[in-house]
């Protein structure tokens, strides 16, 4: 499964309705993700992708596509 679909599955596990999510979906305006939910997402990404997430960098992602891009480029966990 590619990163896009793996991330969609993570969102499904976090109780999002993923049917309406595409790369251009805005995380804040359309999905109503606030800073607390970003923190929750960050921990699950770390666990599932075995990467190190910088919370401040993660918060820069505006769309789902940008989040996919961030996860792809994030450094591997030691």
């Amino acid at each position: 499964m590619d990163t896009h679909n793996r991330l969609l599955e993570i969102f499904r596990g976090l109780e999002f309705d993923v049917d309406d999510i595409s790369d251009s979906t805005n995380l804040r305006d359309e999905l109503d993700i606030d800073s607390t939910e970003f923190a929750e997402i960050a921990v699950v990404i770390e666990r599932e992708f075995l990467v190190m997430v910088d919370d401040a960098e993660l918060l820069q992602a505006k769309t789902f596509g940008e989040l996919v891009k961030y996860v792809t480029s994030a450094p591997r966990a030691e």
């Binding site: 607390t36 939910e37 929750e40 921990v43």
Partner: peptide, 10 residues
């Protein structure tokens, strides 16, 4: 602490 839900306090 990283494994605690960020919603715990609220």
């Amino acid at each position: 602490p990283r494994e605690v839900s960020p919603y715990q306090a609220t």
